[in-house]
Amino acid sequence: MSSSGRFFPPAPAPGIAGDPGIFGPDSAAWRVARERVILAGGPAALLLQVAHPLVAEGVRAHSGFATDPLQRLRGTLDAVLTVSFGDQAQVRGTAGLVARKHRPVQGTLPAPVGSLPAGTPYRANDPGLSLWVFATLVWSAVEVTEGFLRHVPPEERDAYYRDMTRMAHLFNVPAALLPEDYAGLEGYVTQQIRSTLDVGPAAAVIARQVLDPDPPIVVRPARRLPAVLAAGVLPPALREAYGLRWRRRERVCFAVVRCASQLAVPLLPTRVRYWPHYLVARRRVRATPTG
């Protein structure tokens, strides 16, 4: 795999001309998800996910995170981008692929973690766990857009959340479990932090591999950047639970990166600023269907 391929999913196939997929050009989902800068929230989103002991055990026991620590982040990103910008067939194909990959992921906690006793069962396609993973993706995308690019007003947050609930249904989250609006999603995240999340041994190992992998995947001066980004985006309680440093130097570094992003990203050419999935989708929608 190329060095860029370790971080970024490849550009998708063109798809069916004129097919807008499940969202379309005027959607809040396209406005938010098209920005490459949302990748800055990747470490925090992953650490949020595995702070749930059952998610962490599923990742530990059923994935190759030890040999490829970016596997889950890259796979999740590829699935989200394809569902966001793919045509109808690509969306169905990705949802089916994720379901097949999740089907064998099940087991039990080998030891107690937080409020969950040893032997607690888990399965990747459990609607409650799917809701938590969905919530971390939506929450981190809004937080990063707000902090690293532009203000996201409440009405746009709600519109983005409503769009993304259509994605949630594709990944086994029933409507009855979904919060009513974005404020409800924020409340759900807060409640999970207070009542369920706990950074156990599996989560701690995954966090070390993601934030400072061995061998390193970035040059030495930037090796601390994923940890700084995670520390700055995560809620304070989880930042402390993971033992992430948040001294003056980390706070200054985070503020500098965020300010630089706000200034630089709007000036970037579209092929650099936006994911290729969005650019392909925009061309596809403008194309004239054949036949």
Rank of each mutant, 00 (worst) to 15 (best):
V105Q: 00
L81V: 03
I206H: 06
M167Y: 13
D158V: 03
F85L: 02
R282T: 05
D26L: 11
V142Q: 03
T290C: 06
I16A: 14
P127D: 11
Q262P: 01
R150K: 09
V256D: 12
R249D: 03
T108I: 08
L73F: 08
I16W: 11
V265F: 09
V80W: 15
A17M: 01
A176Q: 14
G15S: 05
Q88G: 06
R72I: 05
S84E: 01
Q209N: 15
S2M: 05
T290I: 12
P9F: 02
C259V: 12
F134R: 00
A222G: 05
L229T: 02
P289M: 07
A203F: 15
L211P: 03
D212E: 11
P289Y: 06
P289C: 08
P20W: 03
L185S: 03
V80L: 15
G75S: 12
S115P: 15
V138Q: 01
M164Q: 14
L48K: 01
T94M: 07
R248L: 11
S27P: 06
S261Q: 11
N125P: 02
G128N: 12
L268Y: 08
R271L: 06
E57R: 14
D198N: 10
L46E: 14
H62P: 12
L109S: 14
W139F: 10
A66L: 10
R286N: 00
R286V: 00
L177H: 00
D126I: 12
S140Q: 11
G184Q: 06
A260W: 05
R251A: 04
P25T: 09
V219C: 09
R249L: 02
E156K: 01
E146Q: 10
L149H: 10
V280S: 06
V144Q: 13
T108E: 11
V285M: 05
T270K: 07
L229K: 08
A66D: 11
L70I: 15
A11W: 07
L244A: 02
I193Y: 04
R60A: 15
A33V: 04
L268V: 01
A260P: 04
S63P: 02
T145G: 09
V280M: 05
A141R: 09
P10H: 08
R223W: 07
P104A: 03
V32A: 09
F85G: 02
A29K: 04
L238P: 01
